[in-house]
Computed example of a mutant assay.
Amino acid sequence: MWPDRRILNLFKTEFPIVQAPMAGAMDADLVIAAAQGGALGSLPCAMLSAEKAREQVQIIRQRVSAPVNMNFFCHKLVSADPSREAAWKERLASYYTEHDLDPVAPVNAANRAPFDGAMCEVVEELKPEIVSFHFGLPEKGLLARVKAAGCKVISSATTVKEAVWLEESGADVIIAQGAEAGGHRGMFLTDDITQQPGTFALVPQVVDAVHVPVIAAGGIADGRGIAAAFALGAAGVQIGTAYLRCPESKVSAPARTLLAQGRDDSTVITNVMTGRPARGLVNRVMRELGPISPDAPEFPHAATSLAPLKAAAEKQGKLDFTNLWAGQAVRLGRDMPAAALTRALAGSALARLSKMAG
Rank of each mutant, 00 (worst) to 15 (best):
M1N: 09
P16Q: 12
P21I: 03
M22T: 03
A28V: 05
A34S: 13
C45H: 00
M47R: 09
A50F: 00
V57S: 06
V64D: 12
S65Q: 13
N69A: 01
N69D: 04
F72V: 01
L77T: 14
D81G: 07
E90Q: 12
A93F: 12
T97S: 15
H99M: 14
A110W: 06
N111E: 14
C120L: 08
C120V: 08
E121F: 09
L126C: 07
I130N: 03
I130G: 00
A144N: 10
S156H: 09
A163F: 00
L166P: 05
E168R: 12
D172R: 06
I174C: 07
I175A: 03
Q196S: 05
Q196E: 08
T199W: 00
I215F: 03
A217M: 02
I220D: 10
I220M: 06
G225D: 06
G225L: 07
A227K: 00
F230R: 13
A234I: 03
L244Q: 04
E248W: 05
E248I: 04
S249M: 02
S252E: 06
L259G: 01
D265S: 03
T267P: 06
I269S: 04
T274Y: 15
A278P: 10
R279M: 00
R279G: 00
L281H: 09
E288C: 10
L309K: 13
G317D: 05
K318F: 00
F321V: 08
N323K: 08
R331A: 12
L332T: 07
A338R: 04
T342Y: 03
L345M: 05
G347C: 06
S348Y: 02
L350A: 09
R352W: 06
G358V: 13
